[in-house]
Amino acid sequence: MWEYTDKVTEHFENPRNVGQIKNASGVGDVGSLACGDALRLSLKIDDNIITDAKFKTFGCASAIASSSALTEMVKGMTVDDAEKITNEDIADYLGGLPKEKMHCSVMGREALEAAIADYRGLSLPMAEGEVVCDCFGVTDLEVRRAIKESNLHSVEEITNFTKAGGGCGKCEERLSEILRQTISQGLKVVSVTHKSKRMTTLQKIKRIEDVLEREIRPGLKMDGGDIELIDVDGDFVIVSLRGQCTDCFKSQTTIKEYVEKKLREQVLDTLIVEENK
């Protein structure tokens, strides 16, 4: 049995604002029967202020509680403030949700966005993008957003928040790729400031080791390989591939396309990576 907070149980047992507003200013429809949960949020907006909110939800206790909480939260808010509500805000309002149920709060946020977009006569940006998870119809944009907003670090967490990967599991590889990309994009911003600095060899080694450990090894290890830093001589970085990578015909590509690219991005853009045979 799930461990729900008292507030989740209370909202589930006594949901607020059930129903549908006639002549609503904006309606957001998310989820589907096939997915196992769906939410229709309707908003009444006067002078940019949300004066009424009602919901209809098909789903489990936490989906119903999240919807109910959301309507309570947005009533009386300006549209601009409501727009800033995140799924974490909804979960916090309920005193937290089990991690496997975080997607219920994401559904709330998505419905709110959809209703606001409908009010403004705009189309939803998230629905564009490439569908990564066919089972639940989740796009790469939605996945990237969840990774950034909720600071996700594993495919399992992505599934808990977006449902992507929770069906047949065929998209897991793609999800971990998106995870790697999204995280490294975040890091790039930080590392840019270091890029042009002059570094001592020791600093260089330290930073190269860091990047290898954080970003390159995990990927190689998934394929049964590994990488070791042998030497740093000026701009030349000598590495050795281990395990499965040793006799992989793609090893040269790995070194140039992957390792060198990463190190150039994050350490120094003049680095040249060579393999120690």
């Binding site: 589930f12 489990c60 206790a61």
Partner: peptide, 26 residues
């Protein structure tokens, strides 16, 4: 799951084949 939790309020115990109770998403 929602049905089961309402039944639970009356201390009626049963099971469901829904995604939310199966521990998976399907």
């Amino acid at each position: 799951e929602a049905i089961l939790l309402h039944m639970n309020r009356f201390n009626i115990c049963a099971s469901s084949g829904s995604a939310c109770t199966s521990g998976s998403l399907e």
